[in-house]
Amino acid sequence: MKVTLKAFGLASFYLREKLESIELPAGATIADLLEAVTIKDTDRDLSLLSAAKFFVNGKSAGRDTVLHDGDEIIFLLHLAGG
């Protein structure tokens, strides 16, 4: 199946490459999507990723949310605002 991904602001700095359309196996979850698209460099501090938030088709979603063909996923990470 194919899903679209929009990474906002800070979240885009955690992607391996700028991807908008991603091919995933049927039954894949948001956790699987993250595994497929985020950077894996073990030398880097990726702790902030644990605070990521998601919407699927405009509704709040979690890492275990199962994705479907054509879903639109928003991937958010906060920057401390001042």
Partner: peptide, 12 residues
Amino acid sequence: MGTGGGTGASAL
């Protein structure tokens, strides 16, 4: 991006 880099994400 500065502190404003998170504006879109935070609004959502």
